[in-house]
Design a protein around this nucleic acid. Structure first.
Lengths: 142, 142
DNA sequence: TTATCTGCAAACGATTTGCGGCAGC
DNA sequence: GCTGCCGCAAATCGTTTGCAGATAA
């Protein structure tokens, strides 16, 4: 319940303004959990205040990205998806068909991340990996 | 040396035409190894035949995608990257800084893919996963 | 010949930006 | 009141598409 306060405080601490638009957009992002697009946020935001523009949604998303509060991911489609960076690194398995997303714990990726480091000297930026595929209900039957 | 013939044969077998444009584009894709963009191909192709249009490059890429000869991946940027699907499923670790890409064997991902299946009943479409991060030479020193 | 390809230029969807006005601090 | 923010509309970027003419088979 007090979650959104922390987002707002983050803005204040950086000397950024807390405008009604930003507050509404932050609230919408929290309400829409999982992978959401700028349009998703825009659509929800419009219901409470129809005068908030799409450009502002994008500008706010940029801001949150810089503050490290959300992560961006690009799946098959041309549209960028965003997700709240609430509780440390986590990942998603996203269904190609129904778009449902399953949250995966970070440790599912640890062996891979460690292997990359030890064998390839590669530091994976595995804060939010997205794996595409098919969920239980949408699996090709053949 | 005879590699490109097989791509061309693939086209013929499906009753598709082997036009000079397609031959040139295929050659360019082979020459530019790793993750390439449509623009990369276009730029190279222009050198040998300036009259090939960008639309044709995109159309040929679509074709190769359908034939399963290339894979598409979306990294941080808005642009789509393509890679030749030469020898079965494989993956790439791509450096955020220098863009160098390290090819990873499929079995590095097997444990993860199996875990997704057994624990989440999720079938991962892990033909070509891209992991972003930093390579040995570009690692942040902090 | 004839269905498939091509080039061109216009359309497209997602995102960004310039600008004049507005409003948190 | 200053500075950062907003809404608007136009610009941009990557990609797709309609159409009429060209060409591989």
């Amino acid at each position: 319940m007090a979650e959104k306060i922390s987002l707002i405080n983050d803005l204040k601490e950086r000397g950024l303004r807390v405008t009604p638009q930003r507050a509404i957009i932050l609230e919408a992002i929290e309400k829409l959990s999982g992978h959401i697009t700028a349009e998703d946020i825009f659509a929800l935001v419009q219901k409470s205040s129809p005068y908030i523009s799409l450009a502002t949604v994008y500008r706010t998303l940029d801001l949150l990205k810089e503050l490290g509060l959300i992560t961006e991911s690009h799946m098959g489609t041309g549209t960028t998806h965003y997700a709240l960076m609430t509780h440390g690194p986590h990942h998603h398995a996203v269904c190609r068909k129904c778009n449902r997303s399953i949250e995966l714990p970070h440790d599912a990726f640890m062996p891979l991340v460690e292997k990359l480091h030890s064998e390839y000297n590669f530091i994976a930026d595995a804060n939010h990996v997205v794996i595409l595929g098919w969920c239980q209900e949408c699996q090709p039957e053949d």
